[in-house]
Structures are given as C-alpha cells and as structure tokens.
Amino acid sequence: MGSQCLLRAEDLCFERDDLCVIDHFNFELNPGDILQVEGSNGSGKTTLLRLLSTALHPSSGRILYDEKELSDCRYEYCSNILFIGHQIALKDSLTPAENLDWLSAIKLSNDSILKALDLVGLRDYVNIPNIRLSAGQQRRVTLARLLLSNAKIWFLDEPFTAIDAQGVRLVKHLIEDHSKKGGAVVLSTHQSLDMVNIRRLCLSNEESGANLW
C-alpha cells in the first residue's frame, strides 16, 4: 500500500431508490493500468464509471487522487480525466470538427482536429452535421477525443459500441498507447480483450436471476 497510486477508491457505496448499486467497493489504479470492468447488465458498470468521473456522488466511501481527497483537488482531478459515456455528447447540428472543438478543455488548432478526424477515418466528413453521420461514425468522433485529450485517466463506458472491427483495433491500440505513456484506462465492455497488462474486475449482481441459466 506504500506505493503512490493514481486513483484509489475506498469503501465506495452508491444507493439508488433504496437499492445498493455499488456495495463497499475498493480498488486501486496505477499509472499504466488498464482496468476492464465486467459484469452482467445492471451490475453497476456505468454507475461505477460515473462515480469515478464525478458525474455521480457516492453515498459513502471516498475516492483519492494522488492520495488526495477529491474535494481537495477537484480542479486538478477534473482536468486530468476524460469520460466517454453512453451518451455521446455531440450536438446534432454541429460538424465533427466543431463538436471536438467545444468539447475540448483546451484550445485546439484546426490542424490537430483534422489530423485526429483523419486518424479515426472521418476525413471526408469534417463538414457534415453530426445528425447525418451513422451511429458508428458518431462513435468515431468521440474516439477522436481520445487523440486530442491530454487527460491522464480515461473512463470509457462501452467504447466498442457500434464500431466496426477496424475501429475496435484502433481503440485497443489507443488504449495500449495511452497505458505505455503512463496513463490509466478504466473501461467497461463485454468483449474479451487480449491486451498484456489488462486487469479484470468483476461486478457481481447476486440478486439477478442470470445464474439460473
């Protein structure tokens, strides 16, 4: 426990409508870690990611960033995380380039945005309003955020939804690259990923009847 870990959750609990979604949850995240959160539907994967990205507040327990309480370093923490959830947070009437521009916390140059869109295979769609892109293409726009962000910790909720095989390879490559650079990734997915330094974390949902089958 002596080593400095990037993110630590201690006794994290989250209740919603008198139902304990996250129950006394503990974990540690070190630089370079890739953590895959698994679990059946409704086991709280999204809730966990939203808790860690401060979109939700835990009912009890605490989250430590760099061994500091989150309330003491909120600005620092929030400028170092990137959360991509189920909701893609893209405005329908804006183009991919405009969406990436407002979503970024820092001022981006046009060149870097174009380069990122080129890498995710959307070079020809730079000026097309988001609403005319397919679900997979919209998802790819959110992937371009990974390329443009300098956040240390990525929280990716089902990053492989609606993405084709080549896109999945790209995401895996981005995740591995980020981990090599000393960043950390927490992702939830049902796919089995063949990455070297991946850790698996299973959220169990004992009350569900899924085990019967």
């Binding site: 979109a55 909120r74 620092e76 959360f83 959830g85 909701q87 893609i88 947070a89 405005k91 916390a105």
Partner: peptide, 17 residues
C-alpha cells in the same frame, strides 16, 4: 433540455471549470 438529453450537460458538469 437538449444538452441534458445528449449528454453534453454531463460533460460540462464533470469539467474542471
């Protein structure tokens, strides 16, 4: 309302500012 629906509001809320 539209920001709430498409998740932009969430992105704003978890931002550092």
């Amino acid at each position: 309302a539209s920001d709430f629906k498409d998740g932009s509001l969430e992105q704003l809320l978890i931002g550092p500012n």
